[in-house]
Nucleic acid binder design. Structure first.
Lengths: 187, 187
DNA sequence: CGGGAATAGTTGACACATCATCCACGTTCG
DNA sequence: CGAACGTGGATGATGTGTCAACTATTCCCG
């Protein structure tokens, strides 16, 4: 068995059985959940999760216009991804590009009316789906632990050697369930 | 604010603030973790996570050959995805296709020597990365809770209305950190 | 002022996922 | 037997993500 990886003991502490089980459960769940949320979103709102993320960033901003690099940083996307994606969204009329006067290199992504109504239509259903699939299954303690686990792993991912990947400036608010106004009273 | 979604109260209970925070932490973490694992895998093994998943299924099987539909079921992939992906892997020499004699429609995906050495090279580094990024950050209790949360959500996703998506037969073992032989003694 | 270096963004090539469609074979039942 | 229908799988079109190269502007330093 193990002789399949002759150098294993020098490189790897492997995973404990408990960890193996947890990891496989997590991987499976996470894959299915992503798939389900994406499908749900495109079925009942005709936009993708990626579109949604971009639109959230735009509605989060007072004048509904964000620099491309700003988008890249807050979404943790590569700039070329932003560029391609915005191009596609522009073709569908969800956003529009504008040149930046103060910096000749820059350009803004601006929310259109179509874009605004798209996200306003999508957000409630999405939040509802998340609630039904995830939070209705979990106790308060579990929710808290989920947050702690996520924060710990995320911190590990964005500090030290790992951080090299993208020029991580600060980057807050990568994604919301409900666009910012969700300071909804009865929430 | 909330009048942005006039029908919201009829449709949605929204998320509690605690849940919002947990959800955003989870989404962020999960996105970064996926990205990091994929990048890591392709950098130090020259195969993708998808390749890895397919190869694991093959090495899991005594004679290292699996029917396409079998693959689709155990990975929870669509059959066309398998087909395309196997085509690419075949072009790179990681697997090869063989016709099924007992059923003229069917075909087998067979592990090649190159494929075997690819996964043998990839697995330890991958397991090590997962351990370093995830499990080294977590207490035993957190690992247990992570598994419980994952199982609860996964169960919700694969039962009832949600299950309609793919013809969910049974489908076990969608993905492993270490190909099956990982019944490693000291693990 | 001039000439690199850094920065903002785009582009093209390619890997990947999904969807709809198609084809070949098998099964069933008249 | 043979027509109808189901199944295993392949294919092409399209949307999406990544990498590497490129352009254009701005910054910096002499």
């Amino acid at each position: 068995m193990c002789q399949l990886f002759p150098y294993a003991e020098h490189v790897t502490r492997w995973l404990e059985p408990e960890q193996q089980r947890a990891w496989r459960a997590y991987v499976r769940m996470q894959g299915e959940l992503n798939a389900h949320l994406s499908r749900q979103m495109s079925v009942d709102s005709d936009i993708s999760m990626a579109d949604f993320a971009v639109l959230v960033q735009l509605t989060d901003t007072p004048d509904e216009r964000v620099r491309v690099l700003e988008l890249a940083r807050s979404l943790h996307w590569e700039k070329s991804r932003i560029s391609h994606h915005v191009a596609r969204m522009e073709k569908r009329g969800l956003v529009r590009r504008e040149n930046c006067r103060s910096d000749g290199r820059g350009s803004f992504v601006v929310l259109t009316d179509l874009g605004r109504s798209a996200i306003e239509a999508a957000a409630p259903a999405h939040a509802e789906t998340v609630r039904a699939l995830v939070f209705d299954q979990l106790s308060d303690a579990e929710v808290e632990t989920l947050r702690e686990i996520s924060e710990k792993v995320f911190t590990r991912l964005t500090t030290g050697e790992c951080a090299s990947v993208i020029a991580r400036c600060d980057a807050d608010d990568p994604m919301e369930v409900v666009p910012q106004e969700s300071g909804c009273p009865e929430a």
